[in-house]
């Protein structure tokens, strides 16, 4: 890893990390970038491994979507990650595309970025020499296609904390082409038949997936009888609060409506399963 980082440091702008190449080769084909060196991360020992320590799941940055969806530890500790990974793109992109590549490319149309923001995940970052840091997912993306990573910093792993007891997670998306037009994750915690904590994250319509505090607030305190009205309020709050990538006269109202419907639907799903147990 250190060698990979120092190669990027040495070659500068004409070099890039490279994993599955599903995004990188695409932008190269489109002539959007002129690279002469690709530094392959896939073959670095340990960068694809999955492990658990102290209840925290750790997924290597170069693990492919296919490896994630079929990993028993991920199934046990973060089942939502399995169902998300198994619906990304198509079977061929899943076979080679990696989690680290997805997060580092910062395409707003990312499923894992939305889910991982809701789960309170972090990325472990490695740079040249001994440089290491840990970033909460919320701080990784600073804009569409822009991350807080330096040119020579790579994503070593993603860590996902254990869910609080009583927590249910739902992730929904709509897509009209290959990539999702909107991604929504809702995570709720129920105690004694009532929702005590909620996280609502909306991505893809927004430059960066963000928690929407007012939508979350609308879900806290809900019980079975008030769920229907509550999730609609959360949908309204999300539609109001979301910062859109395209807020033009044509697309803006449509994207807000999409947000309203999908947040309500995802919240209903999460709450129903949280109140069941």
């Amino acid at each position: 890893m250190e060698e990979a980082a120092s190669l990027l440091h040495r070659f500068g702008d004409v070099a890039s990390f490279y994993a599955g190449g599903t995004e990188l080769l695409l932008v190269m084909k489109m002539g959007l970038t002129d690279l002469s060196h690709l530094v392959d991360l896939k073959r670095i020992d340990g960068l694809r491994s999955v492990s658990v320590s102290n209840g925290t799941l750790r997924i290597g940055g170069a693990a492919t979507h296919r490896e994630i969806e079929s990993n028993p530890l991920v199934m046990e500790y973060a089942p939502a990650m399995v169902s998300v990974a198994s619906r990304i793109a198509n079977a061929r992109v899943r076979a080679v595309g990696t989690l680290g590549g997805n997060l580092a490319f910062a395409d707003p149309a990312s499923d894992p970025a939305t889910l991982l923001t809701a789960l309170g995940a972090c990325v472990e970052v490695r740079g040249t020499g001994d440089s290491r840091r840990t970033l909460p997912l919320e701080d990784l993306w600073v804009g569409a296609y822009q991350t807080a990573l330096d040119h020579d910093e790579l994503i070593e792993a993603v860590t996902i904390p254990v869910l609080k007891p009583g927590t249910s997670v739902a992730h929904e998306r709509m897509k009209f082409q290959e990539r999702p037009a909107i991604t929504v994750t809702v995570s709720v915690t129920a105690v004694n038949g009532s929702i005590v904590d909620a996280r609502v994250v909306v991505g893809a319509v927004a430059p960066v997936p963000r928690r929407l505090a007012r939508a979350e607030y609308a879900l806290v305190g809900l019980v079975a009888e008030t769920t229907e009205a509550g999730v609609d309020l959360a949908g309204d709050a999300a539609a109001d609060g979301v910062q859109l990538l395209d807020d033009s006269d044509e697309a803006g109202p449509y994207n807000r409506q999409l947000t309203r419907i999908l947040v309500a639907r995802t919240a209903r799903q999460a709450i129903e399963s949280a109140l069941l147990v």
């Binding site: 599903t22 198509n90 061929r92 076979a95």
Partner: peptide, 17 residues
């Protein structure tokens, strides 16, 4: 662009574009 699947081959057991 990895959308249509016409170029699919199997590498080490997995379908790839």
């Amino acid at each position: 662009v990895e959308v249509c699947g016409a170029c699919t081959v199997i590498v080490d057991g997995l379908p790839v574009s």
